[in-house]
Computed example of a mutant assay.
Amino acid sequence: MFTLTDTPVKFVALLLFFTFTTVWSLYQLARRQTGATLVSNLAHLAMSVVMFIMVPGTLWRPFVAVIPLPVLVGFFGVCTAWFVFLGVRGLAAAGPARKHGWHALGHAGMFGAMTWHLAGMLVRMQAMMARGGMGHGGMDHGDHGGMGHGGMEHGSGVDSATMVGVDPAIMVAIVGIPLMAYLLIAAIGNLKNAITPSPDIQDHAGHEAAGHGHYVAGNPRLAALADFAMNFGMFWMSTGLMVPLLPFFSYLAF
């Protein structure tokens, strides 16, 4: 979780990002659409809402008391598989639909990062429970509380509670490297499309046929900005999980 006191810029910015993505997802849903597009837009809405709830502890703690972390990990894992399916289906198609297959795989990368983030929180929480304590606030994103400052309790690396000599927080960060790289690269591409939308971004009919949602209706620049908010917001939210491996990421918590 994040707080207005400890990380005011990050706290406010993430709330704004995920409010925007939630509104955009609701806008995409407020129209008649194919079954596949409906599923995709519902998945985007669910991700936006959960990301919003993840920011303040006052929302996150009661939320996971009702819907436990393992359930959330499983749900977003299924969403990832859905977009992988759409991507593979698109790449197997002939003609213009193939380019939208890559776009669906991009959404799969974003949902995969969400799954990793939640799974990372679960792994770190379980590691702390094995060590006999939950720190200052239970499960969080690694910036403050839960795992101590920067992701490892009291700044230690490997201790007697770790398995095979590797701290679970380090393992989580290693798995996250390609996902974090994808989120950052995708966010840069989203900004480029927000300035000058590419032809495939403006192809509403193609997005509808591909079924991955988010670009089917509305201004393509706003759609690209919504994707930027999701990709960069997830990247920024997840930086705390990378601190045990890349300590300089701690400077992004402000």
Rank of each mutant, 00 (worst) to 15 (best):
L91D: 05
G189F: 00
S25R: 03
F75R: 10
M121G: 15
F235A: 03
H107I: 10
M242S: 07
M237Y: 12
M163Q: 14
K10E: 15
D159T: 09
G90C: 01
A205I: 07
V166E: 05
R61W: 15
V23D: 11
G106Y: 07
G165F: 00
F75W: 14
V23F: 15
F249W: 14
L29C: 04
G112Y: 05
L42E: 06
L122F: 11
T115Q: 12
A30G: 11
L245D: 01
G176F: 05
H107R: 11
L179V: 06
A94L: 06
M242V: 05
L59K: 04
A36G: 08
T5W: 14
H207D: 04
M128E: 10
T239Q: 07
T7H: 13
A210H: 06
R61S: 14
G240N: 00
H107K: 13
I170D: 08
F11R: 04
T3D: 12
G133Q: 03
R98W: 02
L69Y: 09
P56F: 01
P168G: 07
V50K: 01
G165T: 02
L252F: 13
M129I: 12
F76V: 03
L179S: 06
G213S: 02
G240K: 00
F52T: 08
A224S: 15
M134K: 02
G155Q: 02
D227N: 14
M51P: 00
T80I: 08
T22D: 02
L38I: 04
G165P: 03
A119H: 07
V216R: 09
V12C: 11
A92I: 09
T239H: 05
L241V: 09
T3P: 11
Y27S: 10
I188P: 08
R89I: 04
G146Q: 00
L42W: 08
M114K: 11
L72I: 08
G176Y: 03
M110C: 15
Y251L: 14
G87S: 03
V88W: 08
L222S: 04
F83G: 03
S40N: 02
G213Y: 00
F248V: 11
A36H: 10
